[in-house]
Amino acid sequence: MDVTLRVWRQDGPDRPGAFEEYSAPGISSHASFLEMLDIVNDRLTLDNREPIAFEHDCREGICGACGLMINGQPHGPQQGTATCQLHMRKFRDGDVITIEPWRAAGFPILKDLIVDRSAFDRIVEAGGYVTVDTGSAPDANLVPVAQEAAEAAMDAAVCIGCGACVAACPNSAAQLFTAAKLAHLNLLPQGQPERFIRVEAMVDTMESFFGSCTNHAECEEACPKRISIDFIALLNRDYIKAKWRNGRLAGQR
């Protein structure tokens, strides 16, 4: 099949960017979207033009490195699918495909389609862990965990940190990512001791980078792991409790 690409090109962080158009003839419909870009890049290189910079690694939807705005949808048209798992059979011969980077103040563009998502690491560093030094753990079966709890935690824990939720959100809010990380730990017995300190720290850090959630629910649709915004409600509930409790503790802190 033959497609035409409109790709955002930008030399560096605060350099001007613009769309460039490339025609990509003779692409197999079995090719994955990124394989299509590989081919385009090889062709670009051979006629002395710089290839398109885009991030990727595992190419099986788990590392979260990939992430492109394809025809105005994060990770493209297929629901619950990361960019790297998208295949060309989802497009029609002759399509014009617009490819943009994630756009959010918290995700500065580094080059072409690559953005800096390290704000997510800052959020996790703020408290997205259980404080347990190596070796100090009790036997794994000492604390039973209701299967439902483990499953619910897992539903949140599958987040791959791709940033599509932020890219999708009209407010550039990172609520879904943060809520997922919080729910993963806060739904498990192991996460309880630090539950409320964690919520406050992670949300406050999140807000120093990203917008606020006005419940557009667009993130849920964009999420390649179909993580539910119900977790955002949980975040809100826990945060309110946290401010109340931690606030009362503030005197002692």
């Binding site: 753990a137 794994a140 039973p144 965990v145 299967q147 499953e151 192991q190």
Partner: peptide
């Protein structure tokens, strides 16, 4: 064995039986 203990304590949501054990 210690690896499983450590990971569980970190909050790794391993698959569980209905009784709540791994």
């Amino acid at each position: 064995g210690e690896i499983i203990d450590q990971a569980t304590a970190q909050g790794v949501p391993f698959g569980r039986e209905y009784g709540g054990l791994l």
